[in-house]
Simulated assay, not measured.
Amino acid sequence: MPRYALKIEYDGTPFSGWQRQSHRPSVQGAIEAALARLEADVPSIAAAGRTDAGVHALGQVAHCELRKDWEPFRLTQALNYHLKPAPVAVIDCARVEDDFHARFSAIERRYLFRLVARRAPMTLELGRVWQVPHPLDLAPMRAAAAHLVGRHDFTTFRASICQAKSPVKTIDALEIEETGFPGGQEFRFRLRARSFLHNQVRSIVGTLERVGAGAWSPGQVRAALDARDRAACGPVCPPHGLYLAAVGYGRDPFAGA
């Protein structure tokens, strides 16, 4: 059966997350329903990462197997037609080797978190950013973030329900940029690693926000990391500012698409 890689964009607001669930809407369920309109008995699809409820994606990757040898452009168009009106779109598609796996072949995942500091309510970006009503200071957040780059035991920044075998992960990059936003400022957190623990990004951003607000010092973030204790973590920020931005592979499956 021909195997295809799909690059997917979605608004996670109406979904219970990526993973298919009984009696609850999911991104996986929406895509599999669209595939079922093309062929019967399509095997379950696999994704590079299982995003939580409310989390968005700019470049999620999944793979599927179909009986028909589809031309990738036509498969993209057909899937997008049957995905309507769900806020999910296939933005790229490529035929891949049989040993390609969206999750296990991935060597890097990139996340973006958008945080807006302003007092006025959100309108156009409602549900797509985390809003706080107070100003934030970029410099101490960057200083605190530097403590988290590299290989560490991230028990403090790991959800209690995390199923990963080890809390040890390597964050290759954690960059924060500040940009203007109507009535306030936007802070964009960009994180890059081979893989992440459950709620790791949201735990880190929620803690760094406390530093930017002046409630924590950068040194307290280092102490929290060293504590290896979930109770030492700052608040976990909400999911709606989080985006799975990109997934990297040793050989980009979409390079020739």
Rank of each mutant, 00 (worst) to 15 (best):
D252S: 02
T13L: 12
Y111W: 07
A193C: 13
C93S: 09
T207N: 07
Y249H: 06
A102I: 14
V88T: 03
L174M: 03
P121D: 05
D229F: 02
P167L: 06
H134W: 11
C237F: 14
D137C: 06
Q28K: 01
E108T: 04
T156F: 09
E125K: 00
R230T: 14
Y249Q: 09
P140Y: 08
P235W: 08
G127T: 01
G256Q: 08
L112W: 07
I161R: 05
D41E: 15
G234A: 12
S22A: 14
L126Y: 15
Y10S: 05
W216K: 14
L58I: 02
A36P: 11
R95Y: 05
V116K: 06
W70N: 08
E9Q: 04
T13Y: 03
A94G: 05
A62N: 08
V247T: 04
A36E: 13
A53Y: 10
F154P: 15
R74T: 12
S217L: 15
A34Q: 12
A257I: 09
R118L: 03
E108Y: 05
G184L: 08
K84G: 15
R103C: 04
P253G: 10
G256N: 02
T170M: 03
L208I: 14
S160Y: 00
L58C: 06
Q131K: 05
V88Y: 06
A5Y: 15
T123L: 09
A139D: 09
D99H: 15
F100T: 08
E186Q: 08
P235I: 15
R222E: 13
D41A: 14
